[in-house]
Design a protein around this nucleic acid. Structure first.
Length: 401
DNA sequence: CGAGATTCATGTGAAGTATACCTTTAGGCTTAA
DNA sequence: AAGCCTAAAGGTATACTTCACATGAATCTCGTA
């Protein structure tokens, strides 16, 4: 028998470690959210008036990544929607992630996206933004209804295009006569609202919820609960859950990360034909996750961004000295763009691109003053060496270098 | 020796440009009465 | 005469460029002890 056939034969008979892998994926919504009872009730209280067709207060939710903000919000809004449906209450929930490139990363695109949710066809460009607002308003204002708009990662949007958009949000309800719209903003950055006009702040952030990071014990509870459903009995070696929780608690109690870690560890173990999941699997999982995340982001970046990122990775790998914007720009313009027959962007633009790559977490860029030797961004690694290497290879392929 | 001026390399804001796409409008052509 | 198609005119968003000014600590300068 050919080896590849043997592989397939074996594959069928192989004992899986998972019973239900979806439980560990980030799209999974558990029916019970552990250790978020207080937050759930708080949010429920805030938005409950919707059931009486009154406008609930606007809310801002703060918390680091993986503290259950998004999950809690979708959980609560879903339940609310369910009740509303049973009682025939006209309630709509809209959820938008502002970080999605070319979907909701500008004011025009965000409102256009919302209007499309209501079946309106909006061109990708060409109309005045004001016009898009009108279309959106007319789409929702044709009947008495309560709309709850959840804007995830709203801090990213505001950082990118400024806080003018928030001002426009403040006047939404005065434009509507029959419908009402409530804004639920979710932010990873606890400080970002402090930078906006206090009047806008008080209008949009009538209520605030802060999600504290999970501690190691809470993470363990969550992991155990999910692991029970995801894995067959007895596949987890003792200490794996504890270690997994400890890893995640180390950097700001990120539950999503902890779950990813567990899932990927399981996948690796399965591939290696292991009967159990060990701590060693956990370690390789940590590496793989980071790599996947970076690769994912890179996949969606335009050519110019890739070229700049490649330059940075290349220079960081080759030289020992610190790396500054000027060095990057020189190599990018003189060497890389030349090789790629790419029209070089100006230094001004590259400066912005570097800032965006920093926001995406692919690199670290910090503005430093070198006194007599000027002011610049000092650029350093944000990825582990292995990941950086993989990333560089991927870009090489994507750019046809 | 130390306070204040100078300097460098690039950050950063504002305004301008190119491109792609939109709606409106006016003219020309077709059609049906 | 009414209806329909087309192409030009006039408008916008976005990504990028151009222009011009801002930044901030190391270094220089010069008056003073």
């Amino acid at each position: 028998m050919k080896p590849i056939q043997q592989f397939f034969e074996k594959y069928i008979t192989k004992e899986p470690l998972f019973v239900n892998k979806a439980v560990l994926q980030s799209t999974y919504e558990p029916t019970v959210l552990l250790h978020r009872e207080k937050e759930i009730m708080a949010l429920a209280n805030i938005i409950a008036p919707a059931l009486k067709l009154e406008k609930p207060s606007n809310v801002f939710i703060y918390g680091k990544t993986g503290t259950g903000k998004t999950l809690t919000t979708t959980h609560v809004t879903k339940q609310l929607l369910q009740v509303a449906k049973n009682k025939d209450i006209p309630l709509k929930i809209l959820y938008v992630n502002c970080k999605l490139k070319n979907v909701a990363d500008t004011e025009y695109r965000l409102i256009a996206h919302l209007a499309r949710e209501f079946g309106k066809a909006i061109p990708p460009t060409g109309l005045p933004t004001e016009e898009i607002y009108k279309i959106f308003f007319s789409a929702i204002d044709n009947q008495k209804q309560v709309i709850i708009l959840v804007l995830d990662e709203i801090d990213y949007l505001v950082k990118k295009i400024g806080d003018g958009i928030l001002y426009n949000f403040t006047r939404i309800n005065s434009e509507l006569s029959t419908a009402t719209l409530t804004l639920v903003g979710i932010s990873n950055d606890l400080l970002f609202i402090e930078h906006v006009d206090p009047r806008i702040k008080s209008s949009l952030s009538e209520e605030e919820l802060v999600f504290a990071p999970y501690n190691a014990f809470q993470l363990q509870d969550i992991l155990r609960e999910r692991a029970k459903k995801a894995f067959k009995e007895g596949v987890l070696e003792t200490g794996v859950i504890e270690k997994c929780a400890a890893y995640a608690a180390r950097d700001h109690g990120d539950a999503r990360r902890a779950l990813d870690l567990l899932r990927v560890a399981g996948e690796i173990a399965e591939r290696q034909d292991s009967r159990t999941i060990t701590i060693a699997h956990l370690d390789s999982a940590e590496e793989k996750i980071e790599k996947d995340k970076a690769i994912d982001i890179i996949e969606s970046q335009p050519r110019q961004y890739l070229a700049v990122l490649y330059t940075i990775l290349h220079l960081l790998a080759t030289r020992k000295e610190k790396l500054f914007t000027g060095d990057v720009y020189d190599y990018y313009k003189d060497t890389l763009c030349h090789k790629l027959h790419l029209r070089p962007l100006t230094q001004r633009r590259v400066s912005d691109v570097v800032a965006e790559l920093d926001m995406l977490g692919l690199i670290n860029a910090k503005v430093v003053s070198k006194g007599r030797y000027g002011r610049t961004k000092e650029i350093t690694h944000a990825m582990t060496p292995q990941t950086a290497l993989r990333a560089k290879k991927l870009i090489t392929e994507k750019l046809n270098l």
